[in-house]
Design a binder for these strands. Structure first.
Length: 862
DNA sequence: TACTTAGAGATGCAG
DNA sequence: TCTCTAAGTA
């Protein structure tokens, strides 16, 4: 196909550049000076160093709009690359909003991979592929490698396919083809890495398939080997914009350099302090080297932060300062100093989860129960004092009334304004000496009201999530886990996709392998081996091999009939594609039903089954957005979004990695313990570099917070079922003391973690001392104390109250009822206590669960 | 062939 | 602790 015609025919080219030129430029007025500078420097290389929360996306989109408005480029002449679909989508939406109309064009705004697919489909033949190539995901890759490993008689146990996949992925990230893997790597995978890599690539070509790494690698190869093709694209993409430049790997870097080679109109946006993907090939070096790579580059720093308060920024800044070789940025804000970053240690992980759950409930009510209990006695005496004064006619009664009301209604706890006013009134009084101090301490316990949506828990490793899920389930706190397995990676979705792939292209061997015996068709290893052999001997795809085998009678019993049915079905479905009277959506449904796949899950009694059926329905629904099965398959592996957003306010739980780019008014950062965070593995594998990346991760974590940031650690933690005593993270030592407030854990009597004797005045003075005096907790001594405190016997953690007693939910049940729980599956009620049920689950054992989280067994759909 | 059980291994996660 | 895989067994 002539690519030049394509270019002229691009959607959106109709949006004429001249029409845009007449447009006013209101978007420029919304930018601060630095942003504006970055937006207006249109020509030549530009590096936009955008710290966390400095309006990077805003500047980037404004730049696109500016390019269009000044008629520098038509929409189809701008290449804008992001890393995630989410970012691409967001940018598209924002450009549209800024232009005030629906923008059809911007065909080249997308992820690296999505854009590469487009390019590769145009030039597939240059690397020996057909333009209809399929994109394999990680699962397919690993299965393919497993076959290779077996074929090479390598011990799979000592040399697992996963490891090989990792190695090859790594090489691809560095843009090494099998031919130019450096000899220094030749020891990889028992000295056979390079050889297997070569075999793997050959096999992919045979299958007309590529993996994710290939998408980039092939395009880079094409650009390097075919100057004419490269020159064409250099002319077409007049302006290049790159988001999250600090996350680019070598292959992406080369790709960009090649494309920008002519005009050098490239604008890279990034933050070296937020580079957290080194382990998957990102090179911070790319951004550090930018000015060398593009001499004369303009560097613009965005340093005004619009997200967090001063204390939070200062704490984050203090940590990141420990890294070397930074480009250097100093974030500032007009938001005011706000609250200090809170720091607290706990006995163990469960206690930590319990405490955080409690704090979240405090954020709901806007007051801290803990503070109320602790200060109530004093408040009472204060009120008595006020009463006495009022009676004896001393002092301005109205003001005292206000103060008293503030306490009685609780607004002094929940509203900072009231609190400050009360404090002012008291300060003016002679009581300030006696009560003001108390109020100062109380101020630390005034809790902001946040909706659950505004609260996030960011963990280092996903296994930390369980403690929180368990805890929140028992206290009935709604939560959502962000970033689990992606929709299209789920078992049932991949199975269904394999069926669709076979319908569209019967020669798809990987798909065939996946579903021959799913659902069970009595075709075990033996039968499958026979099919493989037959196919190979005849040099045909597996489906054909199976057909021949059946004709020869090489397969018998139950399997033969089932296999014949499957093949006949595939033939029939294949003929049905493109039929006018049957939409591809109906066809898909039919395929899933007739193959017995739906039935398989309907008959499955495990608790996941209903969810899987739900997902299948959703998959079919997603098909409606495409014209045919083929189009759907082409896009799904790259673009399919996660399952539908469930509504309702919920606390978000996610990894620090998943949190990048997000922001929350209140953020909890649990598990700051050496070995967990910074992660031992990261340090073992990458040494000081690994530690620096972990530190950047800490920086990312803290800078997610807008108002309240709470860091915690536990003295003990269960790791793989073993109890381990933990030492607080070295990053805690790096937090600047004047921006941190150390809290005393609940249930810690007699002071733990270096706290002075607790008590009414204790908190205030302890906090003050900690904050202002020489870094008490910054010393090695503090660190040792932490470690010791972990071993000190502590009071039994107290049971916390559940949020709301939902009696209606409980009343529906009696002991012995069979119930269903989303997470634990089926079980029988063995006891009822308040709004909680004791349930003996068939699969999960005995648990205590809040009644509203279960449903009667009969209500369960199937 | 399908189901059961024993044993090993275990980050982070976009495309 | 949990999950996945590979033998072992009906």
């Amino acid at each position: 196909m002539s690519s030049h015609d394509d270019h002229d025919a691009f959607e959106g080219a109709s949006l004429s550049a001249r029409a845009m030129a007449a447009r006013p430029m209101p978007y420029l007025d919304e930018l601060n000076p630095a942003q504006r500078e970055a937006v207006e420097a249109l020509d030549g290389p530009v590096l936009m160093l955008a710290g966390a929360g400095t309006g990077k996306t805003k500047a980037l989109t404004a730049r696109i709009v500016h390019l269009l408005s000044t008629a520098r480029a038509a929409p189809n002449e701008i290449l804008a690359v992001t890393f995630t679909n989410k970012a691409a989508k967001e940018m598209k939406a924002r450009v549209g909003r800024m232009l005030g109309e629906h923008v059809e064009g911007m065909p080249w705004l997308g992820t690296f991979h999505a854009i590469c697919v487009k390019l590769l489909r145009r030039h597939a033949e240059l690397v020996g592929l057909k333009s209809s190539f399929t994109i394999l995901d990680t699962d397919d890759q690993i299965r393919l490698m497993k076959q290779l490993i077996r074929a090479n008689n390598i011990d799979e146990k000592r040399w697992p396919a996963r490891q090989l996949a990792g190695i090859i992925d790594n090489w691809k990230n560095r843009a090494w083809t099998p031919q130019n893997v450096p000899s220094a790597e030749s020891a990889a995978f028992n000295n056979r890495g390079t050889e297997l890599y070569d075999q793997y690539q050959r096999r992919l070509l045979e299958l007309n398939a590529v993996d994710f790494g290939d998408l980039l690698l092939h395009v880079v190869t094409i650009f390097q080997k075919h100057e004419d093709v490269l020159a064409q694209y250099q002319r077409w993409f007049r302006y290049i914009l790159v988001d999250e430049y600090q996350d680019t790997n070598v292959a992406q870097y080369l790709w960009l350099r090649l494309l920008a080679g002519g005009h050098r109109n490239i604008c890279c946006v990034g933050d070296d302090d937020q580079s957290i993907y080194g382990w998957r090939g990102a090179e911070v070096g790319n951004i550090l080297r930018f000015e060398k790579d593009f001499p004369g580059a303009k560097v613009v720093r965005l340093e005004q932060n619009y997200r967090s308060t001063e204390h939070i920024l200062a704490a984050a800044g203090g940590v990141i300062r420990g890294n070397e070789g930074r480009l250097g940025k100093e974030l500032w804000t007009e938001a005011g100093e706000g609250w200090k970053v809170r720091l607290i240690g706990h006995w163990d992980g469960e206690e930590e989860a319990r405490w955080i759950g409690e704090k979240i409930e405090d954020h709901q009510s806007g007051r801290s129960e803990e503070a109320k209990n602790r200060y109530n006695p004093r408040l009472n005496s204060f009120q008595q004092e006020l009463d006495r004064r009022a009676k004896s006619g001393l002092g301005p009664v109205d003001e005292h009334q206000y103060v008293r009301d503030a306490f009685e209604s609780g607004s002094v706890y929940s509203d900072m304004k009231t609190f400050n006013l009360v404090k002012q009134l008291l300060d003016r009084d002679k009581y300030s000496a006696r009560y003001g101090n108390m109020l100062g301490a109380l101020g630390d316990y005034v809790v902001h009201r946040f909706s659950l949506d505004e609260i996030a828990i960011l963990v280092r490793a996903s296994h930390q999530m369980r403690a929180f899920e368990d805890r929140f389930l028992t206290i009935g706190l709604p939560y959502r886990v962000i970033g689990g397995p992606r929709f299209y990676e789920r078992l049932e979705i991949r199975d269904a996709m394999a069926y669709f792939r076979l319908v569209v292209s019967p020669a798809d061997d990987l798909a065939f392998e996946r579903i021959v015996n799913t659902p069970k068709r009595g075709l075990g290893d033996k039968a499958q081996q026979k099919i493989q052999v037959c196919a190979r001997d005849n040099g045909v795809p597996l489906v054909e091999g199976a057909r021949i085998l059946l004709a020869e009678g090489g397969i018998g019993g139950k399997g033969a009939g089932e296999l014949r049915a499957l093949i006949d079905n595939l033939d029939r479905w294949g003929r049905m594609t493109g039929h006018a009277d049957l939409s591809h959506v109906e066809l898909a449904e039919q395929v899933l039903d007739e193959s017995g796949y739906t039935a398989m899950w309907q008959n499955d009694k495990t608790p996941e089954a209903p969810g899987r059926l739900e997902n299948l329905k959703e998959l079919v629904k997603a098909l409606e957005n495409f014209d045919n099965l083929q189009g759907f398959l082409e896009h799904v592996s790259l673009i399919m979004d996660n399952a539908s957003e469930d509504q309702g306010a919920k606390v978000s739980i996610m990894t620090l990695h998943a949190a990048k780019g997000l922001e929350f008014p209140a953020v909890f950062l649990p598990g700051w313990e050496d070995g967990l965070f910074p992660s031992q593995r990261s340090m073992d594998e990458s040494g000081p570099k690994g530690l620096e990346e972990e530190r950047r991760l800490a920086y990312v974590g803290i800078t997610r917070a807008e108002e309240v940031c709470t860091i915690s650690f536990a003295g003990n933690r269960r790791v793989f079922g073993q109890w381990q005593s933990q030492i607080p993270s070295r990053f805690i030592d790096e937090l600047p003391g004047e921006h941190v407030e150390v809290l005393t854990p609940p249930g810690l009597y007699g002071g733990g973690f270096g706290a002075a004797a607790p008590g009414y005045d204790g908190i205030q003075s302890t906090v003050d001392k900690r904050a202002s005096e020489a870094n008490v907790y910054n010393s090695p001594g503090w660190k040792r104390m932490q470690a010791r405190a972990g071993q000190r016997p502590m009071s039994q953690p107290r049971e916390t109250r559940s949020q709301v007693i939902d009696l209606e939910a409980v009343s529906r049940y009696t002991i012995g009822d069979r119930v269903f729980h989303q997470k634990f599956g089926y079980g029988a009620i063995t006891g009822i206590e308040g709004d909680k049920l004791d349930i003996d689950f068939e699969k999960a054992g005995t648990k205590k669960v809040v009644a509203k989280f279960v449903m009667a067994g009969d209500d369960v759909p199937f």
